[in-house]
């Protein structure tokens, strides 16, 4: 199995530990992972701002970097969803389509492709899980509270394999944190309020850590937690699933 590691730009720059944990987690499961060093960004920040027409450069680069792999795995549901929904190429549409079909968010790759049933991780803490919207509602990593259908959750399925980890219940299990890409500055007031409310739900239920399958939501919530001088920390799910 030939797996390409897709590390979104902001994780590369600000959260290398989430990327390292992803790499280690996959390697620990016996997977050979290659990181194409010329990757930059999937183009989502531009596309979600209405500038999808400026993303062809990013798309071409993505195709060059990742077309060769059997699977492409990334620790960001949002970036994976963007690739799945919007990766196109006027010159190599077949390659773009191929990538759209083989790109996976980390927890869905672990659950659906590797069918992981056991992990040797230990994390003796109270953890609140933030359901990132693009992962949950876009990639369907977990059942959505709006729908009348059977419950499931790929991130929770994995977290339950971690020794000592205690999950905290939330009042609103899948409300958006308010990051939303450029929304976080374009709509600063609402974005901050959403973030504060989301953080409060975790804190009020005793979480020591907030985790998610998307680092961008965590970056937003971390910004708020640190401004509040809170002791509560954020960790990418890969860091918990590989914690010792």
């Amino acid at each position: 199995m030939n797996v390409g590691l897709f590390i979104p730009c902001y994780i590369d720059q600000f959260y290398p530990n989430a990327a390292i944990a992803t790499l280690n987690l996959l390697s620990g499961l016996g997977i050979t992972v290659k990181y194409p060093v010329n990757q930059t960004c999937c183009g989502q920040p531009m596309a979600n701002s209405g500038f999808e027409h400026l993303t062809q450069g990013c798309n071409d680069l993505f195709i060059d970097n990742f077309a060769e792999f059997d699977y492409i795995v990334s620790p960001s549901g949002s970036c994976v969803l963007h690739i799945k929904d919007h990766l196109h190429s006027p010159t190599a549409e077949d390659k773009a389509l191929g990538i759209r079909k083989k790109v996976y968010e980390l927890t869905e790759f672990l659950t659906d492709v590797l069918k992981v049933e056991k992990l040797s991780a230990r994390f003796p803490h109270k953890v609140g899980v933030h359901q990132s919207c693009h992962g949950q509602r876009g990639l369907m990593l977990a059942q959505m509270s709006e729908l009348v259908d059977a419950p499931f959750s790929k991130p929770l399925h994995l977290l339950k394999m971690v020794e000592g980890l205690e999950l905290v219940e939330l009042s609103r299990p899948d409300e958006c944190c308010g990051f939303g890409g450029t929304f976080c500055v374009a709509e600063e007031a609402v974005s901050v309020k959403m973030g504060k409310d989301r953080v409060a739900d975790h804190v009020n239920h005793g979480a020591e850590y907030i985790t998610a399958a998307d680092m961008s939501c965590l970056m937003h919530m971390e910004g708020i937690l640190r401004r509040q001088n809170s002791n509560v920390k954020v960790l990418h799910i890969a860091e918990i699933l590989s914690a010792q």
Binding site: S49, G138, C176, F183
Partner: peptide
């Protein structure tokens, strides 16, 4: 633009 595109 007054949305995070959360999909709810």
């Amino acid at each position: 633009f007054a949305s995070t595109l959360c999909g709810s």
